[in-house]
Design a protein around this nucleic acid. Structure first.
Lengths: 257, 257
DNA sequence: GATTAGTGACTGACCGGTCAGTAACTCATC
DNA sequence: GATGAGTTACTGACCGGTCAGTCACTAATC
């Protein structure tokens, strides 16, 4: 009936309830001895943020944004709910911080991949490194979170798209372009090809999950899957005719794992 | 403090609140004239289920399961909340019904693909048909819903995995196997190859979204993307050397769009 | 003693689910 | 063709459990 105010989380909102209750001070009697037997609390203000972020990633990952309770996150971090609010403005901001911090970690991993060498070596190093990222326990959780909360956090989605997906696209298309120029890869649109390569990695990362759609079918081992992936991509990239400018050294790098 | 009872939806629960309040009858006075000026309600019991399912898909698709309010779904369907409960047991069941009904529709579309012809013709018909499914407006929404609610609805996830993903895997691997036997495709593990092909389609379906990760980068047209996809897959499948058992007719079917 | 870190009971908005009540329709009877 | 009793479809106020966010207070540290 009455207009509902701006919303926050929950179904999608809970209104900043007591935000304006200001003079509530005298309402309740001071509760006596509210802490019974806590195990000698330590004060570690600089450890708190990561502590909270770790716990939050766990709980968000398990339940999703809406179903995750701040009480649970606090408990998992070994803190009280109020403490979270000393370090993060609200649940939304905490969620953003979780995603950002995780992605930064991933980006740093990815950063180690900027290899030098022939296009084929770089490609090989790249797919190997990225496969490792994708097999990491956080990847699936974060990706699912970002995907499912996408409508509610367009800024995060943009961030993820730009900093993770698009960054990879750029990197891969560069390698492919060089490979084409060197004649070791067939001539294609490097951007489109990068989309194929990136996409195929991401989807297999999602399908890896022990709890995913395909968990009741056989899940191939990560190594076997990588072998197949690598083979498929090399086949898709190899030049149209066997005799290219340079001898195709693909089979060597392909079988080396 | 007190034990929390079994939960339903919401964050993840709301308890069947009034389930046992039984004798509440006399509590409130019968509200007078509770309907002010409704536009002559019509009774169409057989239209209700689809009406509700349509509205529910919209709202779930926009907000996700937890954030979708039954009041919103009811309003969008032009009904009162209570009416939903005449046709569906609760929010969970409504969600299940939405996913099932959508997937059934998708499966029927996919059904039309069981083509006959050479492996290459079948492959071509298949990817073209499936691309159409993937470009349909519901695909992304349903996929996102299933993905994000996966931990809460393992049965649905299984259903989706078996009936949509695995079904496709089987279909594709069959085609690939035949193609290998006929010598038009290079020799690979058909199952793994089917995973690659299926996966690459799914991921591009997800990346198509106007509101997705990549929406701020250029989104290629569906036709252009399909062209690239098709080219990439044909390249990955073509035999290792140009002269195979049969002449590779791939380029013909590839350029026909 | 002053300052800063941390706590958790409490508040209030929220929304799934219920059900007494009302409107629309049906059909037997006049 | 009208009356009204019976049936079914639908409504929406209400209930009660839930949890984000607050703040008066306590504990550690300076």
């Amino acid at each position: 009936m009455t207009e509902r105010p701006a919303k926050s989380i929950r179904r999608s909102g809970a209104g900043r309830s007591g935000a304006d209750r200001a003079g509530a001070s005298a309402k309740k009697p001071p509760r006596a001895g509210h802490r019974s037997a806590a195990p000698a609390r330590r004060r570690r203000p600089d450890e708190r943020p990561t502590q909270i972020l770790d716990a939050a990633l766990d709980v968000f990952g398990e339940k999703g944004l809406a179903a995750a309770r701040l009480d649970d996150i606090a408990k998992r971090a070994g803190l009280a709910k109020g403490t979270i609010y000393l370090y993060f403005q609200n649940k939304d901001e905490l969620f953003r911080a979780v995603i950002r911090s995780t992605l930064v970690a991933e980006l740093e991993t990815a950063e180690t991949l900027v290899a030098i060498g022939t296009p084929e070596e770089r490609f090989d190093t790249f797919i190997r490194g990225w496969w490792a990222v994708i097999c990491s326990p956080t990847f699936e959780r974060v990706h699912r979170l970002v995907t499912s909360e996408l409508p509610k956090f367009p800024d995060l989605a943009r961030f993820y798209g730009t900093e993770v997906i698009a960054r990879n696209l750029r990197l891969v298309s560069g390698i492919v372009r060089d490979g084409i120029a060197a004649g070791v890869y067939r001539s294609t649109d490097p951007t489109a090809t990068a989309r194929m390569i990136t996409g195929i990695f991401v989807i297999h990362g999602l399908w890896r999950s022990k709890r995913g759609f395909l968990s009741h079918l056989g899940i191939p081992s990560d190594d076997a899957m990588f072998e197949q992936l690598s083979d498929f991509l090399h086949a898709a990239l190899r030049p149209d005719r066997a005799r290219a400018h340079h001898p195709p050294a693909l089979s060597a790098s392909r079988s080396q794992t």
